[in-house]
Computed example of a mutant assay.
Amino acid sequence: MQKRIAIVGGGIVGATAAYYLSKLPGSEKIKVTLFDDGVGQASKAAAGIISPWLSKRRNQQWYRLAKAGADLYPELIHDAQLGTDVYQQTGTIVTREDEADLETLFALAQDRRKTAATMGDVTTLTAQEVQDQVPLLTAPQPGVLITGGARVDGGALVEGLLASASKRNLKISHERVKLNAQGQVITSLGARQFDRVILAVGAWLKELVAPLGVNADIRPQKGQLIELAVKDYPLQEHMPVVMPEGERDFVPFGHGKLIVGATHENDGKFDISVNPEVTADLLGSAQRLVKSVTADSLTGVRVGTRAYTSDFAPFFGLVPEHEDFLVASGLGSSGLTTGPQIGKFLAGSALYGGTPDWSQYEKPLTTYLASSAE
């Protein structure tokens, strides 16, 4: 009899888990159903930078997880046969106006590179050299170039992974589901029982696990970014992404497409409507970097909802006292970096069982999940 596994949530964690559940040894013995209504998902709205190595976060568990996620990407993209429109190691440039700050940043990069071969080469660039690398910029600052940095389109990545898994053992149900106190998944066709359930709904986790008597330390945050049409330089798809000091992230894609953002709007919560004032702020950031950009350059706006914990750290693993359930949430703005590695971890656990030790990557789950009776 085939084992039945459910995934609730089709973002970066759910999609990667589904992909590995279709690829890992033994996948031919399972059936996977993914439930997702597609509303507000952070991953599908995101386009970001995979370059965790210069983060100044003091949380070393997060850094190890983010580094592992960056290391996984080339293998995942190759194995899933996804193209450069989804992910490409273009390099990343982190800029600093002050010379002393630039030297400090470079020293940090050199130190981190000792244990992170994926970083590639690390060099300092003058403002002119930054502009030579990214000719779109009209007001460049000096910076540090990390050749192993990359850009990724979250929506295209999720779509590609789910399409691959759907060719094997994945069925996708486009609906929002709930859980009941008996641990069943309540669908539009009634209650269904699964052998294992992966809960990867991000900011919606608190509501989802409440019937299990579990309280989750999760809050929502709105994020918005803009897409712009800019001059299509030759080989633009190879331009490094830029993390400019004092401005929004600057992510050039090929064929004259530029993405700028994203915002961090705590008051926005689950609101996924476009905020014209925020759009204007993002456009202003773009114009300070590229003088030719105008309101007419705007081609699209993406909005999604991220999930955060009180200490801004992600968590994942077996739900305490409900070990048929695996969970992941709290990825925040680093979801595209950490999500694939978390999804792979959860897929392996759902398929093979056991109690893996992930303590090098996170605090105990009881830090974030507690019995609502307490």
Rank of each mutant, 00 (worst) to 15 (best):
M243I: 04
M243S: 06
M243L: 15
M243W: 10
M243V: 01
P244C: 02
G246I: 10
R248E: 03
F250Y: 13
P252Q: 11
F253C: 04
F253D: 07
G254C: 10
H255W: 05
I259L: 07
V260H: 02
V260C: 00
G261M: 08
G261T: 11
H264C: 08
H264L: 09
N266Y: 06
N266W: 10
D267T: 02
K269L: 14
K269M: 12
F270P: 08
D271C: 01
D271Q: 09
S273Q: 14
V274H: 12
V274W: 00
V274T: 08
N275K: 13
N275S: 15
N275I: 10
P276T: 03
V278I: 10
T279V: 15
T279R: 15
A280M: 13
D281M: 11
D281G: 07
D281E: 06
L282P: 00
L282F: 02
L283S: 06
S285E: 01
Q287P: 03
R288T: 01
R288L: 04
L289D: 07
L289T: 10
K291P: 05
K291S: 11
K291R: 13
S292T: 15
S292G: 06
T294A: 01
A295S: 15
A295Y: 00
S297W: 14
T299R: 08
T299A: 02
G300H: 08
V301D: 09
R302C: 08
G304D: 03
R306K: 07
R306I: 13
R306F: 11
R306Y: 12
A307Q: 02
Y308N: 05
Y308A: 06
T309Q: 06
S310G: 03
S310I: 10
D311F: 00
P314T: 03
F315N: 09
F315S: 05
F316H: 03
G317V: 03
G317M: 04
G317E: 12
V319K: 14
P320F: 04
E321Y: 14
E321M: 11
E321I: 02
H322N: 04
F325Y: 14
L326N: 09
L326T: 10
V327D: 08
L331Y: 10
G332H: 02
G332R: 00
S333Y: 06
S334F: 00
L336C: 05
T337I: 14
T337Q: 13
T338E: 13
I342C: 10
I342H: 11
I342V: 14
F345A: 09
L346D: 05
G348S: 02
S349N: 06
A350G: 04
L351H: 11
L351G: 12
Y352K: 13
G354D: 12
T355Y: 10
P356H: 11
D357N: 15
S359W: 01
S359I: 05
S359T: 09
Y361A: 03
E362G: 12
L365H: 09
L365K: 11
L365C: 11
T367C: 12
Y368G: 07
